[in-house]
């Protein structure tokens, strides 16, 4: 029987997986996995530098990730003379450089800083459950409210931008949501591993689902499953939570690929 101490941890983990799984549908669908990693690493930069200057790391993560989200939104494929993925990859590498610089500059114990890199869901309490749960509800409401705009952006950002004036503000708001959710979940999953959660749930859902809404539901479920099973695995085998979560996420993707092949899912 699990100790009551672990209940909020389990619930917060499930909410984190749910939110990031939902975000992953758009990150993968837009074929821009670097967007997610760029924002998550910006959150990590904010957190480690805040920690270096004895400020609340979540606050630092929040500020930097939202700034990065806004920056990424302005890397428009048609207005720059380089590929948007290349621009995001450069930003990502720069962020990683800043993170490791901060780790090197830390004179005291580096445990907390390294915790931000690898993550530990054991930080979570009932307050974390309220925050991650609230954000998950807000994200679901956003995805429902702007369904038609988000679908159009997924299909083609440029086509959507020509069709409707609401596209770019909705896209920017979506990226800010990314920043917010990644910053809040950084401590739990870790900056280096959160990238996997931003890819695997949607990649798995795209393997076995046909239809926009079924992909959203499946990716959300797979995200929650990855964090919950990852936590249970780490609890039972006494292993790092972030690593277990990533491994479960990858296994879900592998299983979905096999299911697709076995059932020869058609269109």
């Amino acid at each position: 029987m699990m100790d009551a101490y672990f209940i909020p941890i389990l619930i917060a983990g499930a909410f984190a997986g749910l939110s990031i799984g939902l975000l992953s549908v758009f990150i993968v669908g837009m074929r821009m996995p670097f967007i997610g990693s760029c924002i998550s690493h910006a959150a990590m930069v904010g957190a480690v530098y805040a920690s270096l200057f004895q400020v609340n790391p979540t606050l630092g993560a929040l500020v930097l990730s939202i700034l990065a989200a806004a920056g990424v939104a302005f890397i428009h494929p048609h207005r720059r003379h380089f590929d948007a993925n290349t621009g995001q990859a450069i930003l990502l590498a720069f962020m990683m450089g800043l993170v490791f610089l901060a780790v090197a500059l830390e004179e005291g114990s580096r445990t907390e800083m390294l915790g931000l890199l690898w993550g530990s869901i054991l930080f979570a309490d009932w307050g974390t459950v309220v925050v991650t749960g609230g954000l998950a509800v807000l994200l679901v409401a956003f995805v429902i409210a702007f369904e038609k705009e988000l679908k159009a952006v997924l299909f083609s950002r440029s086509l959507a931008a020509v069709t409707s004036a609401a596209t770019e503000p909705v896209y920017l708001a979506f990226l800010c949501f990314c920043g917010l959710i990644l910053a809040v979940n950084l401590k739990a999953v870790g900056g280096l591993l959160i990238f996997s959660l931003l890819v695997c749930p949607a990649a798995a859902a795209y393997q076995v689902c046909r239809g926009y809404r079924s992909v959203l539901l499946a990716a959300t479920g797979f995200g929650a499953m990855a964090t919950t099973l990852g936590f249970l695995g780490s609890y039972v085998f006494n292993l790092p939570t972030g690593a277990c979560t990533v491994i479960v996420g990858t296994l879900i993707f592998g299983a979905c690929s096999l299911v697709r092949r076995a059932l020869a899912i058609s269109e």
Binding site: G29, M30, F155, S156, Y212
Partner: peptide, 12 residues
Amino acid sequence: PQQTEYNSHLPF
């Protein structure tokens, strides 16, 4: 647009 401008692999 030309085909490179949209993602025709999504399950829409």
